[in-house]
């Protein structure tokens, strides 16, 4: 090349329509050495913690309210811990397959990339399918979105998470499609890595939800009607409200 380039691709190399030079693993230089899109993804994930943080805060605020009011169905009667544990396990393992997909493409192994991406998408779909099944079960047992505070906060929290997983599955399938059409090379491994960051993040959110929503036991249902004035705080509340003592 007669001359060097004015590197304006830096200015737009990403933004989604990212077409890397074929076979070159060279990225436009940045002031920090951090890739534009990867930095964007980390910033997004950091922001997403606040998104899920607010949802979890809402769930925890209302944890135990259904019991307080004596309006079932209650989580203690409705949760199917073995089933959800399997779901949680499935999602956890999809993180493994995701990282294996990345490892494959970093070595230029296209076939490996596609197989592991497909495996991840499959596990993700299983998780979403499981959630659909769970929701349907719950509705059958009488827990609708508006039945009580438990129903509302549960469906909205896990539903938003499920939506994240669904978007992830679509993203992974898109990567598979791109790889089939044009071939994905070592130089494109960042595409996979970024999708992976998103995917693992969705997984860690579920780790938190699984513990806070499913595993931490709920207070037995209080034998009081809605007219009763003061109420109990759920087990979890009491455990953590040691702070109460200080206040």
């Amino acid at each position: 090349m007669a001359t060097t380039a004015i590197d304006v691709r830096t200015a737009h190399g990403a933004g989604g329509g990212h077409v890397e030079e074929h076979g070159h693993s060279e990225h436009p230089p940045t002031s920090t050495g951090m890739d534009h899109r990867k930095l964007l993804m980390w910033a997004f994930l950091t922001s997403d913690t606040m998104f899920f943080g607010s949802l979890i805060a809402t769930y925890l605020t209302y944890r135990g309210r259904a019991e307080d009011l004596g309006e079932g169905p209650y989580p203690s009667e409705i949760f199917d811990i073995p089933f959800t544990s399997v779901s949680a396990f499935v999602l956890l393992m999809s993180s493994l397959t995701m990282v294996l997909a990345l490892a494959a493409i970093q070595k230029g192994n296209q076939r490996g990339l596609r197989i592991w991406l497909l495996a991840t998408a499959l596990l993700g779909s299983m998780f979403v399918g499981g959630q659909y099944f769970e929701f349907t079960e719950f509705v059958h047992e009488g827990l609708g979105l508006t039945t009580n505070m438990f129903g509302s906060s549960f469906y909205v929290l896990t539903g938003f998470h499920g939506a994240h997983v669904t978007i992830g599955v679509i993203w992974l399938l898109t990567l598979v499609f791109v790889s089939l059409r044009g071939g994905t090379t070592q130089g494109d491994s960042l595409d996979v890595e970024i999708a992976g960051l998103y995917w693992h993040f969705v997984d860690i959110v579920w780790i938190v939800i699984f513990t806070l929503v499913y595993l931490i036991p709920y207070e037995e249902v209080a034998d009081v009607g809605a007219s009763e004035a003061a109420h109990l705080i759920s087990t979890f509340g009491r455990e953590l409200s040691v702070i109460n003592g200080l206040w």
Binding site: A43, T46, M50, G53, I56, T61, L69, H231, L240
Partner: peptide, 29 residues
Amino acid sequence: MFIAGLVVVFSVIGALIAMFWTDQYYVPQ
């Protein structure tokens, strides 16, 4: 970046929940 974000989220959400749990829930009958 990520840890700083987590610290902010954890403190804010922790404080928020703590403020709810110190109150007992009353039905505004």
